[in-house]
Computed example of a mutant assay.
Amino acid sequence: MTVEIVFRCPPEWDDILPRPIPGRDGLPDWLRAMPGQAHSVPLDQDVRTVKQCPPFIDAMGGGWLMPLLCDVSVDADCSFSWDWDLPVSSLDRLTRAPIAQHPSAQLDGVPFAAPGMAALKFNSAWTVSVPDGWSVLFTHPVNRFDLPFRTLTGIVDCDAFSHGFVHFPALWTDRDWTGTLPKGTPVAQLWPVPRGITARFGTLDGDHVGQVEETLDLIGDARGGYRKNHRAHNR
């Protein structure tokens, strides 16, 4: 099933804003550079790295990446600045700042927010629209623990909220990080998710037993068994 996402921005900024991109087009340089195999000292043999793990790669390459709108400089005291000369938009209530601050009190009692940790909001200038009956999951770019922030996860009903701007709350986790976050840095990753999913439970008996054995044989007899026999190719 194909689900179309529609991204819209103010017309005055269409030629300026970085666009959301498919996850596969935003794979990080470190993933491309890492080896496909590495030596395991405990096993005394070479093993495949996560670069050859389809679920790991497919998660990173799935969905769409939402970009940082412009270069943002970060000083040692976690102060943020930017130099971005945007034309005036007809949407006069739309912020022109790429980053805003959340009051730290909003995180009181959250176990993963250390006292004094900067609470940010990455602003977006793109609306997101999906078909009726679908929501959108927004989360931190998958497996991107190299980034100095952690975007919080949320779900938005973007079939109804198709003309509102979804911004991305985040925690600045690396207090020692200074420098410039470049324009286009992925600040969130999104997937459409259907609503109304139900579940049922059963046991692995009857034909399911044989199917489990067949699956285990296919993935155990040769390297790449999951990739060759079970992985979808129409991504």
Rank of each mutant, 00 (worst) to 15 (best):
N123A: 10
N123H: 15
N123Y: 03
N123E: 15
S124R: 01
S124W: 00
S124G: 12
A125V: 09
A125G: 13
A125D: 01
A125Q: 11
W126Q: 06
W126P: 02
W126K: 02
W126C: 02
V128M: 12
V128F: 04
V128W: 04
S129V: 09
S129E: 15
V130D: 07
V130P: 11
V130Q: 03
V130W: 02
P131L: 10
P131D: 11
D132M: 04
G133E: 13
G133F: 15
G133I: 13
W134M: 13
W134N: 14
S135I: 02
V136W: 02
V136T: 11
L137T: 12
L137W: 06
L137H: 08
F138I: 07
T139S: 10
H140A: 10
H140P: 07
V142T: 14
R144N: 08
F145W: 13
F145I: 15
D146Y: 12
L147D: 01
L147G: 10
L147C: 12
L147F: 12
P148A: 12
P148T: 10
F149W: 12
F149I: 10
F149G: 04
T151D: 01
T151E: 00
T151L: 04
L152Y: 07
L152H: 05
T153E: 14
T153A: 09
T153P: 04
I155K: 14
V156Y: 00
V156L: 00
V156F: 02
V156H: 01
D157T: 10
D157V: 09
D157G: 06
C158E: 04
C158M: 06
D159K: 10
D159P: 13
A160W: 11
A160G: 14
F161Q: 14
F161S: 09
F161E: 12
H163I: 06
H163G: 06
G164R: 06
G164T: 14
G164I: 15
V166E: 06
V166G: 01
H167I: 05
H167C: 05
H167N: 13
F168P: 04
F168C: 07
F168V: 01
P169W: 00
P169Q: 00
P169E: 07
P169T: 00
A170R: 02
A170P: 04
A170W: 00
L171Y: 11
W172S: 12
W172D: 08
W172M: 03
T173P: 03
T173C: 15
D174S: 10
D174M: 02
D174N: 13
R175E: 13
D176K: 00
W177D: 04
W177L: 00
G179R: 04
G179Y: 07
T180D: 07
T180H: 06
T180Y: 04
L181A: 03
L181I: 05
L181M: 08
L181H: 05
L181D: 04
L181T: 08
P182R: 11
P182Q: 10
